[in-house]
């Protein structure tokens, strides 16, 4: 197990180099210039040139890249051009919202998705199955943006149970903070739940025909044990990687939901920073996202090794 983990950890480095090089090069190749954006329409060419020089943008790309990697090696993500503060604090300012939103919506997605999918499979062809699958198809087809606006109309404007938009930090009270995230979490969570429900259903249906299920039942085990101990464990292995990907997606920020609900999360930060050509922030967020995905993939692999002994002996 230790050897397996060490091997996986070594493979992380090349996985990180690719996004680092790609994002840096793509940004510098794309048109648009932070100095022009910052100075606005009235700026003269001399002012733009002066600002470019002070931001180091007049240097050749390889030397800019060298400087950035040098900073990274010192665990320094650089300085935001737009916010005039360190990229790390810009990211942490925005990451807390995303993290909280992720936890809420992920819990919702997994519980509702797995429960719905199992119900549908166990009652295949019956009314429960039909209802769950229709809801799931609607869920995967819903555009987040549209769904979010409708949730606002229903629960914030019509019945006024929740605030229309905005984020209340945890420091202002746990329940107030969670309440401000209920609608966005519903919006994100229900859409992801639909994916998980469909996947769980088909996986359970596959597992139900496996010999070990027949064996378990023929031993006279109660159905509860068969489902929760035997079927659920097998299903978990199959859907673990998908759940990992969903967690990664949620953690890297949900752009549409954050814009609709005016949440200052990582998704909105990234999109705004692209509009402003705030290179250091874009690079920082992409790097943080890559790290998140790598970490989650590692975690999923380790969990696989735990759940399925065959993996660690390969």
């Amino acid at each position: 197990m230790g050897h397996y983990m060490f091997k996986r950890l070594l493979l992380v480095l090349p996985t990180l180099v690719v996004p680092i090089v790609l994002i840096f090069t793509l940004l510098r190749l794309a048109p648009g210039d932070p100095a022009v954006v910052m100075l606005g329409d009235q700026a003269t060419a001399e002012q733009v040139a002066k600002l470019r020089a002070s931001l180091g943008l007049d240097q050749p790309i390889y030397s800019q890249f060298g400087d950035w990697v040098g900073q990274l090696l010192h665990l320094n993500l650089g300085h935001s051009i737009f916010f005039q503060q360190s990229v790390l604090s810009t990211i942490t300012d925005h990451a807390s919202v995303t993290l909280q939103l992720t936890l809420l919506s992920f819990a919702l997605a997994v519980v509702v998705g797995v429960a719905g999918g199992m119900l549908a499979a166990l009652y295949r062809g019956r009314i429960v199955d039909r209802v769950v699958m229709i809801l799931a198809i609607i869920g995967v087809s819903l555009p987040e943006f549209w769904f979010g606006l409708n949730l606002i109309f229903l629960f914030a404007v019509t019945v006024r149970w929740f605030p229309v938009s905005g984020y209340i930090p945890l420091a202002d009270g746990f329940f107030a903070s969670e309440r401000s995230l209920v609608l966005p979490a519903l919006c994100l969570g229900m859409i992801q739940a639909a994916f998980i429900a469909r996947l769980t259903r088909s996986t359970v249906l596959d597992v139900l025909t496996e010999p070990f299920v027949t064996t378990a039942r023929s031993k006279g085990l109660p159905e509860r044990i068969v489902v929760l101990k035997h079927i659920a464990r097998a299903v978990l292995v199959s859907i673990l990687s998908t759940i990992g990907v969903i967690l990664g997606l949620l953690l890297s920020g949900a752009v549409a939901v954050e814009v609709v609900f005016a949440l200052p999360g990582l998704g909105q930060l990234l999109v705004d920073s692209v509009g402003r050509r705030d290179y250091p922030v874009i690079q920082g967020v992409v790097l943080a996202t890559s790290l998140t995905f790598v970490a989650i993939n590692l975690l999923v692999d380790f969990l696989y090794a735990l759940v399925d002994p065959r993996v660690r002996y390969e």
Binding site: V111, A115, M118, L122, Y123, V128, R160, F162, E178, V182
Partner: peptide
């Protein structure tokens, strides 16, 4: 089992959805 799962799903919805004052 079905009842258990339904209750769990509903509880989740209630916890996230209706914990507020109007």
């Amino acid at each position: 089992l079905r009842n258990g799962i339904i209750v769990l799903a509903l509880a989740c919805l209630v916890l996230t959805g209706c914990s507020s004052s109007p």
